[in-house]
Amino acid sequence: MTLDQLPENKTGIIKQINDKNLAIQLLAMGFILGGEVKIERIAPLKDPILITSGTNYISIRKSDAKNIDINPDL
């Protein structure tokens, strides 16, 4: 499953990021492999989305979220 498919207020664990530049950027912003990620809010026009990991809190476009493989928490 990829991050863009996760519904609002749900969490998952980041497995892999399939875009090198995006990966380096996200790691430095506190979204690490094996770390938890939560969909905090989806923008009124369905894109972009706000995601959190711990107290790290960023916005990201769905096209980038598609490149993030996750294991959803049930």
């Binding site: 995006l22 950027q25 912003m29 706000l50 809190y57 960023i58 916005s59």
Partner: peptide, 8 residues
């Protein structure tokens, strides 16, 4: 891309 931190 639009990867932007939401500061406190």
């Amino acid at each position: 891309t639009f990867t932007l931190e939401m500061p406190v």
